[in-house]
Amino acid sequence: MFSKVLFGRFVPTNSLIHRLDPRAKLVLSLYFIVIIFMANSWQTYAWLAAFTLGVILSTKVPLKFFWDGIRPLVWIILFTVILQIFFSSGGHVYWAWGILSVTQFGLVNGVYIFCRFLLIICMSTVLTLTTQPLMIADAVEALLKPLAKLKVPVYELALMLSIALRFVPTLMDESQKIMNAQRARGVNFGTGSLIKRVRSLIPILIPLFISAFNRAEDLATAMEARGYSGGEGRSKYRLLHWHRADTVACVVMLGVTLILFELRYLA
């Protein structure tokens, strides 16, 4: 019931994008976010937007899910855009009042910032809608692997991340149950003064913490019984496979970059 709150939930459609290796998807999304900052003209933005739209359509995920990802951030975007419009200067001045002014550059910058935000959100939503959280965790582990040589406990961190993900629904469920029990005992959440509202959380948070600690203790015992004695040398059941499609995706991204630079210096 709560999974909607979690960063754009996984929607299985088995598209080409879904089947890409999570490492490829993670690295390429991060890379794309970086090159968005290279765009500097309407041609470059148009090119990146067209590419993003192409990717979105190829996921076969209904567009509504992307809108769900953007909606909670609408206010932040608008706020930033407005700041940008009013506070940047240069070019033709359309309107001025004290330190506030609407200028040609301001408007253009505002539009660019808006595009930048939109592209970043869309691309990261593509990642989360087409990749299970667990796969993202696997990709992070694989990418951080070289750090293990520097004594960074990469395996332990990855296991922690995967266990945390696995327990999110359990704890959500638990908090709903505790909330029901306290409401049945007369607690009214979300009414009254701020202090009253904060205080009404205590009967939820304390049982939730206690239950989480008990679960952690049980889990540790169970892991020990199953022979877990640290991350060192464990074999892996879930292997990531790099396919030709992943290489192709990298090449495509390279092509996108080349065209972007072409457009950038053309202008």
Binding site: R166, R226, R234, K236, Y237
Partner: peptide
């Protein structure tokens, strides 16, 4: 096998969980 079904499920999926003990024992993939 312990009492609470929720608190001994380590893996993120059913197959991952079954594999957990095997991973600890370095069984090949």
């Amino acid at each position: 096998v312990f009492q609470n079904p929720d608190n001994q499920f380590v893996g993120a999926t059913v197959a991952d969980d079954v594999a957990f003990g095997l991973e600890n024992r370095h069984v090949s993939h």
